[in-house]
Design a protein around this nucleic acid. Structure first.
Lengths: 147, 147
DNA sequence: CTCATTTCAGTTGCACTGAAATAA
DNA sequence: CTTATTTCAGTGAAACTGAAATGA
């Protein structure tokens, strides 16, 4: 597709590299999830539900960093597809409690495997030690900028 | 703002970490460039022009990874602000040759410094060696996924 | 009263697609 | 005839903003 190297000026900017890496990552992830008719937000929400069980929408927002208002829409779509249930919380009537359905549990387990493969494709050029280093450095960056 | 740690399931996904890092990076960059009334695409184009001098739009697209059609719009906006000129290429009449104006040269030099500060803020939690490692690993990832 | 939760309505920048017109 | 360049028109996911309604 594109010949012609990216400019050195941009290539030397960490923010640009991170962004280009994110574009590659998102393309691979979108492709993989798209095969299941889902998007990134859907998986993120289901992953949290698989990990924590029944969770309110506000809590889903915090655990995924997806905005509260976007959680609404994504949960709607998951509900339509029969992958989650949304029930009123009896102990706090402001809240909805979201739960994976059996179909949702099955789907997220399958997507876990699909996404594991995606990680492998994404990190293909790096050795296991380098992958670990990268993940560690990114985790520290992310922690620093989200606290 | 947000208490509540991100889910472990997501935190263990390199693609998720890269994405979160990109969100932080883009927020800082957008904030810095926004003060000058510009966006990321504008800087990327001007950085290439500063580095290479007069360049066609198709070549700008390749060097920035910005889509050809988006280059059109961004160059329009830079032209309106008097930061670049767009002249027909006499030797290939399909092409436009884009050049930085004196004001553009001045602006991009200023933004270079602003963005250098942004990189420092972005990488704040990492030591100089760690920054180098991160940049190196990301560069290899990006190279692998854009060739 | 203040704060948290859900929801709606809207915005913005970014990445991308498809196709037309022009010219190499 | 095929390919490259510019441009237009439009799409889509993602991240975000502001505010209303409800209830702790």
């Amino acid at each position: 597709m594109d010949k012609g190297e990216p400019a050195e000026r941009l290539h030397g900017l960490p923010s640009w590299l991170i962004n280009q890496a994110a574009i590659a990552a998102q393309r691979l992830v979108a492709e993989a999830l798209g095969a299941a008719g889902l998007r990134r937000y859907h998986y993120a929400l289901m992953a949290v539900l698989a990990e924590r069980g029944a969770t309110s929408q506000a809590e889903l927002s915090r655990r995924t960093t997806i905005d509260r208002s976007d959680v609404v829409g994504a949960v709607n779509e998951l509900e339509e597809r029969g992958l989650v249930r949304r029930d009123p919380d009896t102990s706090d009537r402001r809240r909805n409690v979201v739960t994976l359905t059996p179909a949702g549990t099955e789907t997220v387990a399958r997507l876990d495997r699909v996404l594991a493969d995606v990680q492998d494709t994404l990190l293909a050029p790096l050795s296991p030690e380098e992958r670990e280093t990268l993940v560690h450095l990114l985790a520290r960056l992310v922690a620093h900028h989200t606290h």
